[in-house]
Design a protein around this nucleic acid. Structure first.
Length: 503
RNA sequence: GGCGGCAUGGCCAAGUGGUAAGGCAGAGGACUGCAAAUCCUCCAUCCCCGGUUCGAAUCCGGGUGCCGCCUCCA
């Protein structure tokens, strides 16, 4: 199946064609590991996780590469502030990253390169750039090594030498610098203010690596050029990351890689929009953010993942309690239906044989079309609605002819959708309990036993109801509601689920 | 100052030339010990102005508003 993809480079939605038939190389900019990740980071990972799942489902042989930046100014500053080594700091936050992503059900990329293990490739690339006349070396202050001053240099990329510079972000640098110049200090060491560092001379107290230019470390952008080319070759299919990386990071990546290899570098550039709070970009530097673990302390990971897929990946997505409550409600609604279906199917095993109902065929096609249309996840999620409505109707009359088969077919469809989207794949019957457990601090009366408290009250209420003690029953319902639990009575008995307040 | 994005019902959000998906919330009815759930019914003409077209939320021009990048940033 052909799919279409928005390409930042051409500003158009293009029919995708891999460079090599059946194979796709994809590089996505990962995180700088000096702190816990926020919801914005979660979005990139979830978005490209869906991309990954979809491409594999379509039968492509995908190589997905996502890096960790484990040397950089902020990392060094944080490590110094903590009084710990760079390695211990980065290792800690790489593990924290994995914990967060595992909870969000993001599958691991095939290759996760780190800057510190690619110094050879980085140095080679800088040498190539200089050799081809696109970089220059500027002597720096000698740096003490083993108490001996050691000569060292910076290496810069020469933007002037590279006429196609700016093709991704479409900026004319002279104009670009105009209004921004107040914020950017003039660096007299550079031949041209547009030039950027390929290699930074070591400074006292900083980690460094030996190089042809003396002790130093890589500039920010060169790592991705070098690691992408190493693992995917000089030309590959897809490069992704957040919109904020378009300029200068990705622009510089292109210039460096093309200057070094003479090859095309990435063909399709995918950029995801920001997660915002009150429409303002979520960002560490401004303090305007929630960490993933903050959010997961209050909402089930499935709720966050679902929320992150409710808008198209290129658009901004506004994070709020209300939006999360809405997502939670929808996720619970769906899981509730799935739980009923699973219970019924367990009692009365039914194979999804024969021709699927029309709704399922239509929805299946719509699901794939939506994902192949630039990974339109809101459309994909909408495709689940009609089958779920049909499922609900069938669940109400399981004995009617064909209804069990219908339930089995819809259940199978949701499971296939879950494989692609990474939501609705959990054992449905446990979900509301899981959500309650995660939310226990805010949901239950202080000092209560959480889930046990709910189950106690529910049991007491069952007794009252069987005695037709309606007054006591209603009293208990009110207590439970106070405790954040909604009760509902059915023919099969009383059920409960977390109460979600939505304005 | 340069470059770019967005503006759809109460809220969120699809839709890129043929007469507005989906979610959440709301109203009325059925059902129910009550309350839910469920079922049925109802709830928008797409920021403003002008243009192209038989026909535009969708294309063009001009506004207004919000946001982003140009410094670290997913």
């Amino acid at each position: 199946m052909l799919f279409r993809l928005q390409n930042t480079l051409t500003r158009q939605k293009e029919a995708f064609a891999p460079l090599a038939p059946g194979r796709i190389g994809m590089y996505v900019c990962g995180v700088t590991v000096y702190d816990y990740c926020h919801v914005g980071h979660a979005r990139v990972c979830v978005v490209f996780d869906v991309v990954q799942r979809t491409l594999r489902h379509l039968g492509y042989d995908l190589t997905y590469v996502r890096n960790f930046t484990d040397v950089d100014d902020k990392i060094i500053a944080r490590a110094n502030a903590n009084g710990e080594s760079v390695e211990s700091l980065t290792e800690r936050f790489i593990q924290a990253f994995y914990e967060d992503m595992d909870r969000l059900d993001c599958q691991r990329p095939d290759i996760e390169p780190r800057v510190t293990t690619h110094m050879g490739e980085i140095i080679d690339m800088v040498q190539q750039i200089v050799a081809r006349g696109h970089g220059y070396v500027v002597a720096s202050e000698p740096v003490p090594v083993n108490d001996q001053p050691m000569a060292t240099s910076d290496v810069y990329f020469s933007v002037e030498s590279f006429p196609t510079y700016g093709s991704l972000s479409r900026r004319v640098q002279e104009d670009n610098a105009d209004g921004a110049s107040e914020r950017v200090s003039f660096d007299g060491r550079k031949k041209d203010q547009r030039d950027f560092a390929l290699w930074k001379a070591a400074k006292p107290g900083e980690p460094w690596w030996p190089s042809p230019w003396g002790p130093g470390r890589p500039g920010w952008h060169i790592e991705c050029s070098a690691m992408a080319c190493k693992h995917l070759g000089g030309a590959f299919d897809i490069h992704g990351g957040g919109k904020d990386l378009v300029f200068p990071h990705h622009e510089n990546e292109i210039a460096q890689a093309q200057a070094a290899t003479g090859d095309a570098f990435a063909k399709h550039w995918m950029h995801n929009g920001f997660v915002t709070i009150d429409s303002e970009k979520m960002a560490k530097s401004t303090g305007n953010f929630f960490t993933i673990r903050d959010v997961l302390a209050r909402f089930h990971p499935q709720v966050l993942r679902y929320f992150l897929l409710t808008a198209h990946y290129t658009h901004p997505l506004n994070f709020s309690d209300k939006a999360m409550d809405e997502a939670a409600k929808r996720v619970l609604n769906v899981y509730e239906k799935l739980a009923q279906a699973d219970e019924l199917l367990a009692r009365q095993p039914t194979a999804a044989t024969g021709k699927p109902p029309a709704v399922v065929e239509v929805a299946q096609a719509e699901l794939m079309e939506a994902l192949c249309d630039d990974f339109n996840t809101p459309r994909a999620l909408a495709a689940l609605s009609e089958p779920i409505t049909v499922l609900t109707a069938a669940l109400a009359k399981p004995k009617a002819a064909g209804n069990m088969e219908c339930i089995a077919h819809v259940r199978g469809f949701i499971a296939r959708a879950a494989d692609l989207l990474g939501v609705f794949q959990y054992p449905a019957a446990q979900l509301s309990e899981l959500i309650v457990e995660l939310a226990r601090d805010s949901m239950f009366p202080p000092g209560s036993e959480g889930l046990a408290w709910v189950l106690d009250k529910m049991r007491e209420r069952d007794t009252a109801r069987s005695d037709k003690n309606w007054a006591r029953s209603d009293e208990l319902r009110a207590e439970l509601l106070q405790g954040g639990v909604e009760v509902r009575d059915t023919r099969e008995g009383s059920m409960w689920r977390p109460r979600l307040a939505i304005d």
